[in-house]
Write a protein that binds this DNA or RNA. Structure first.
Lengths: 225, 225
DNA sequence: CGTCCCGTTGAAGTTACTCAAGTCTAGTGG
DNA sequence: CCACTAGACTTGAGTAACTTCAACGGGACG
């Protein structure tokens, strides 16, 4: 096993986790490390689809332009997730870093050819894709119908689940209020108002700008529907 | 090639299109025909995931319960599309027929094992899954932000594209006003009002309850954003 | 011919957006 | 260590859009 892979933080959760040593070596030969600073983009909507990769650390956002040119976040990527689009020549998504991030990137076409030789890897990717589809569909009823209160409660529960807690119960959001609005389809002021209301109701406690302590997770889950 | 497959209307668009004779025969042996009447369900949210299949004719809807128990359509399936969920034991989606429909159904677990032997089929499914993911994400900004007018225009253009025209330019919607609302996250009255407004503006012309003639498709596309 | 269901239209109420000030945090430099 | 600043967050008031509630029209089918 390549030394870099053995030491990789995403070794057991990324695309690579399903691979034997030979497949891993094959991927390694086409891989390149890349770091992104918070705010920096990996790709832009409409660009030729040339790179994709596995996220090793940090959080990325996937955005698309809404009808009025306002950008909408259509997905978040956490360590181990696969970033980028396969089997297309032009990207639909803009992918950018919410926090500083490390990736293991591959040229798209080479990766596609490599995957064709390793069905186990392709199957893993299929499972991931179906899970992502299901997750995207889980948000549809939320964005289509739910009130701001429910959307925000759902997002808080979701992020707490994925970001885990560093012991003291305070979740550090990888998102600004503005980014939360971009995910939820809400104005920044609406997000802020509801967060304050949750705090007043004793459901959460805000810690600095990004920290949140979930004081009553069941109640939040109930609000989320 | 099995005679039933040779005569199948979805032979060249479904999962089967990527298969050689041997794989096709393998699938055929585990397949069963099934017809659904309009309104009839293939599976319900929460049921064990036991069946999936290829849609041969008709249109299906995929729905999930919203936060307030109201059902939200999260996807439509047209002939050739794959229906059902793989790699899960419990379904998230309710799948039901909007029109009378024919399917070629497989037991999920058997299909999964069969697919593992035919990487070409699995790759096709991966491409489909990624396309579905992209389509679901295309709706996110719509539902999150866009006004009723834009959502409805987008849906009309979308359906016209998929359902084609029977020559005279009239598209027969597979959806009632209520179903359109379930897709778009709008009240039935809002859909109705906006359809009337489009007609008054000369963008469309309503033909009976389900027929629509798109008189100014560019304008609709522009409204859709 | 009547009924039922779907669709349309109208009026009132609610929710979140927009615009506009403030306030706080975190990071910077003295 | 403290002061300062830029950006992020919060709060308030007014408005626009959609929902809800309610009643009416009209085609399909018995």
């Amino acid at each position: 096993m390549p030394a870099r892979c053995a030491a990789c933080a995403a070794r057991n959760t990324s695309l690579c986790s399903g691979l034997g040593d030979d497949a891993l070596a094959a991927l390694h030969t086409i891989a390149r490390r890349r770091t992104l600073r918070a705010g920096q983009a990996l790709s832009w909507t409409g660009d030729p689809a040339v790179t994709c990769g596995s996220l090793v650390s940090g959080v990325l956002k996937i955005t698309r332009a809404g009808h009025d040119k306002r950008s909408q976040i259509v997905g978040l990527l956490y360590p181990g997730d696969f970033a980028g689009e396969l089997f297309v020549t032009q990207t639909s998504d803009t992918i950018a870093a919410l926090t500083d991030a490390d990736l293991c990137v591959y040229p798209r076409e080479v990766l596609e050819r490599t995957l064709a030789c390793y069905p186990a890897a392709e199957r893993l990717l299929l499972q991931r894709a179906l899970a992502s589809l299901s997750e995207a569909r889980r948000w549809l009823p939320m964005l289509a119908r739910a009130r701001a209160e429910a959307r925000i409660a759902a997002l808080l529960v979701d992020i707490a689940r994925r970001c885990g807690e560093p012991g003291n119960g305070v979740v550090m959001l990888p998102l600004s209020r503005g980014a939360m609005g971009e995910i939820l389809g809400l104005a920044i002021e609406t997000v802020s108002r509801n967060m304050s209301a949750f705090q007043d109701a004793g459901l959460i406690s805000l810690v600095g700008l990004r920290g949140v302590r979930l004081l009553d997770r069941p109640a939040l889950a109930r609000l989320a529907g």
